[in-house]
């Protein structure tokens, strides 16, 4: 593409600009989530730090996804959902009404279980959200698109079909496009809800490599059912467990400690396949 050559200078400038934006620190304190009257998450406390991947593991229905969806207030979309406690991103509580949703969603990107690119071209999938967020210059949008497609390793695969529908890409490519789309808004924190559960092992591997590369620029919190995946890529692992229908964190620590010397009996049984 022409704009690539012309904009090397702009690209460098953009890179310099983004250096100032650091990955975020996340602290969750006493988070409880209710659906109607049902307590789904019970007083969870968790930390995630820059330069690391935090994996949330646990059996189905233990509240992992509810915790994740509270961080960017996605569960506000659900009627009767109530969230209490504090979620601090860079020491600011995001659960208060004073913290604007716009600011929060810009700071926190999210990737879902099954790839959900918009029904538009590959290029528009990245450029349309940017335009909607007020990035007026077409050139800037295209530079940003090039940037994130490079970052996610998609550029070489899609550079000749930027104007084709994104729904024609393979599942793995679609999911990387969704990651690229989230990255285009320059988030400081990236939430992933079982991002590989709909993908084959090869596509999964690509995403795992990508996440390893991304953690230097963005803090990553990831829900996964796949224990082996957590072991491979996460720096720290939090184990969720359901007690009478409400999820709690039974253990959160360095990956090798959780897997090799778990402090909790539940973790040990879950990992060895006795429970869960």
């Amino acid at each position: 593409m022409d704009f690539m050559k012309k904009n090397i200078k702009t690209l460098n400038l953009q890179e310099k600009l983004s250096i100032g934006k650091k990955a975020a620190t996340l602290r969750i304190e006493n988070l409880s989530v209710y659906y109607d009257q049902q307590l789904a998450v019970n007083k969870v406390t968790l930390d995630a730090n820059p330069n690391e991947i935090l994996a949330l593991v646990g059996p189905s229905g233990c509240g992992k996804s509810s915790i994740l969806a509270s961080i960017n207030r996605m569960n506000m979309m659900i009627d009767d959902c109530r969230v209490t406690g504090r979620i601090l991103i860079n020491s600011e509580n995001v659960l208060t009404d004073q913290y604007s949703l716009t600011k929060l969603r810009q700071k926190v990107g999210m990737v879902f279980q099954s790839p959900n690119p918009f029904p538009m071209s590959v290029k528009d999938n990245i450029c349309f959200p940017l335009k909607d967020h007020g990035l007026k210059s077409k050139k800037d949008r295209e530079v940003r698109m090039f940037d994130v497609l490079q970052q996610t390793g998609l550029w070489d695969e899609v550079k000749d079909r930027l104007n084709q529908s994104a729904l024609k890409l393979s599942g793995g490519q679609q999911q990387r496009l969704c990651i690229a789309r989230a990255l285009a808004l320059k988030p400081q924190l990236l939430l992933l809800d079982e991002p590989c559960s709909a993908l084959d092992p090869k596509a999964t591997e690509k995403i795992e490599i990508l996440l390893q590369e991304l953690k230097s620029t963005v803090t990553i919190v990831m829900v996964t059912h796949n224990l082996a995946q957590a072991k491979r890529i996460a720096e720290r692992v939090a184990v969720c467990w359901s007690f009478n229908g409400s999820g709690r964190i039974v253990e959160c620590s360095q990956t090798d400690i959780v897997f090799n010397r778990p402090a909790s009996k539940i973790t040990e049984e879950y990992f060895s396949g006795v429970a869960g």
Binding site: N72, M74, M77, L101, T102, R105, Q106, G109, M110, F112, S114, N116, P117, F118, P119, M120, D124, F128, P129, D132, H133, C178, R181, A182, L185
Partner: peptide
């Protein structure tokens, strides 16, 4: 899933309707 994605990206309601919902 389109609505979820738009919500997470904080796309404006109008933008979502015109560019995503109606074409879909």
């Amino acid at each position: 899933s389109y609505r979820e994605a738009a919500e997470a990206l904080n796309i404006s309601h109008t933008g979502f309707i015109i560019k995503v919902l109606l074409p879909s």
